[in-house]
């Protein structure tokens, strides 16, 4: 039996090492499409995709939209504000209505953990989780893996530390699952008030001090610190957060080796990351964004029934069968 992703992409927890490998390998040849003058292949011609964004998003939504358009799918965007959702429609009714329009795929971003799985259980269409609450953001995890693999040529044995608000981060969970399944060593670093109480049960080590994390890691994935966390009393101030946990030039200079810098965006410059780090020579933050489109093309392609071995051929179309 050939390897596939199944009906939906809901989490990296649910994927095997082989399935993750499949997405990364499928994305590789698709990168080139975005470098062309005419960035369009006919692979998903005739497929209808709804991008259902219940939460504000720029990067992820635009990235999915480009991936869909470059593969010639017909995509519509539904934002929560101004839609039936803002009129009190439940998620299940929204799903049923989309289903009734015979769409092929749904990309969903939602503020509640489990919302993508909820939808996937109730509709026939393929569902892609574009971030559900504080649960997972699998395509972000996959693009982070691809970016790391591009730089280090391997993931096995790599030491990656996820820094910051792990408690509220879907990016962190997808990274932890993806990295550990691919054989990387994963650590987290942040104030204990922003780390899940039982985080060690996910197979990660915890650094209380950012200096120790930097000394240990080959790469840092620095999470966005949301202003609301301060208001909710998790940390005293953004200023102190930067002083204690901020990834700064000085801290990186003291490290024994170069450390690769990732950030899922959007960044708070001067809070979790300093500008000269974000814009510095070891930052791959924009490579992540570029890879995001290829990863999403790969996921759309695989869920639509495409075979990885044909991904290269798919670029010229005709690999649907």
């Amino acid at each position: 039996m050939t390897l596939s992703l199944g009906k939906d992409l809901l989490s990296l927890e649910a994927l095997s090492r082989e399935q993750i490998q499949l997405v990364l390998d499928t994305a590789e040849p698709l990168k080139e499409i975005s470098e062309r003058a005419i960035k369009k292949v006919p692979t998903l011609r005739g497929a209808t995709i709804a991008n259902l964004f219940f939460e504000a998003s720029t990067r992820t939504r635009v990235s999915f939209e480009f991936a869909e358009k470059r593969m010639s799918a017909d995509a519509v965007n539904v934002a929560a504000s101004g839609s039936s959702v803002s009129k009190g429609e439940t998620l299940v009714d929204t799903a049923r209505n989309l289903e009734a329009m015979r769409i092929d795929m749904v990309v969903i971003r939602h503020g509640s953990s489990g919302a993508a799985a909820f939808l996937a259980d109730r509709i026939q269409s393929n569902v892609i989780n574009a971030g559900d609450g504080t649960h997972e953001h699998p395509t972000q995890g996959l693009l982070d893996l691809l970016t790391l693999r591009d730089r280090f040529k391997k993931l096995d044995g790599l030491k990656v530390c996820i820094c910051g608000d792990v408690l509220h981060s879907r990016v962190a969970r997808s990274n932890i699952w993806g990295l550990t399944k691919m054989g990387a060593e994963v650590a987290v670093c942040g104030p204990r008030s922003l780390l899940p109480n039982a985080i060690e049960s996910m197979g990660v080590t915890v650094f209380d001090r950012i200096e120790a994390a930097i000394e240990w890691a080959d790469a840092l994935n620095i999470l966005r610190l949301q202003l609301e966390r301060m208001q909710a009393g998790y940390i005293p101030s953004l200023r102190e957060y930067n002083r204690v946990f901020g990834v700064t030039r000085e801290r990186l200079d003291r490290a024994p080796k170069d450390v690769l810098i990732l950030h899922p965006g959007p960044m708070n410059r001067g809070v979790e990351i300093d500008s000269d780090v974000a814009d510095g020579p070891h930052s791959v933050i924009l490579d992540q964004v570029t890879n995001g489109v290829a990863i999403r093309m790969a996921v759309l392609y695989l869920l639509s029934g495409g075979k990885a071995s044909l991904a290269d051929a798919a670029k010229s179309g005709g690999a649907d069968s």
């Binding site: 609450g133 969970r173 039982a198 049960s201």
Partner: peptide, 15 residues
Amino acid sequence: NEGAVSARLGLKGIP
């Protein structure tokens, strides 16, 4: 419940 499962599911826990 707050614990390993809430950490995994990304749900706010009740300790």
